[in-house]
């Protein structure tokens, strides 16, 4: 009983504590979602790109084939539809997925399109050439091989992610 006496709280103090407490909760209730919404796009991490189903393994041959695919890319606040192309072929049982972007200045390369250079990737802009495995041909403008896509094969389907640069 005596301890309760020592802790007597006046009506005024009681009201102050209660109001501060309730006010605090209200302020937090408003502020937290706001902060969360503001940070959300930043927390998601912009360049995280999901793997996209591009082709079925049955379709692939030893000969590189062109596959176009599109996916939604979220770039912080903006979502856009992106179309990408990949050259896919089989090397034994392994699937190889090359980016079509010439490593010289970014034109789009084509497979086996120039009569003088059969079985090579050829860039129509400045005559850059790449072997079937994407390695650049010495003496042509590109200085590194074609990028390879991050790749996964699940249940007979080829999924591609980001292009990765090799040196």
């Amino acid at each position: 009983m005596s301890s309760e006496k020592e802790h007597r709280v006046s009506r005024r103090q009681f009201l102050t504590y209660t109001l501060t407490g309730v006010g605090g909760f209200m302020a937090a209730g408003i502020a937290l979602p706001l902060t969360r919404f503001a940070l959300d796009p930043a927390l998601e991490g912009g360049d995280e790109q999901e793997m996209v189903a591009v082709a079925s393994v049955d379709e692939l041959t030893e000969e590189p084939q062109r596959f176009d695919y599109s996916f939604e890319q979220e770039d912080a606040w903006h979502t856009s539809e992106v179309t990408q192309t990949a050259w896919l072929y089989l090397d034994g049982d392994e699937v190889v997925a090359l980016s079509p972007v010439c490593t010289h200045l970014g034109c789009t390369v084509d497979w086996d399109s120039n009569e003088d250079f059969p079985n090579q990737f050829f860039c129509p802009c400045h005559g850059g050439r790449f072997e079937k495995d994407g390695v650049n041909v010495a003496g042509t403008p590109p200085t590194r091989p074609l990028d390879v896509y991050e790749m996964e094969v699940r249940d007979g389907t080829v999924y591609l992610g980001r292009p990765i640069s090799r040196d």
């Binding site: 200045l105 034109c107 802009c125």
Partner: peptide, 10 residues
């Protein structure tokens, strides 16, 4: 845009 994408480097 399509032409630019194809021939970006030149």
């Amino acid at each position: 845009d399509a032409i630019e994408r194809q021939f970006k480097g030149r």
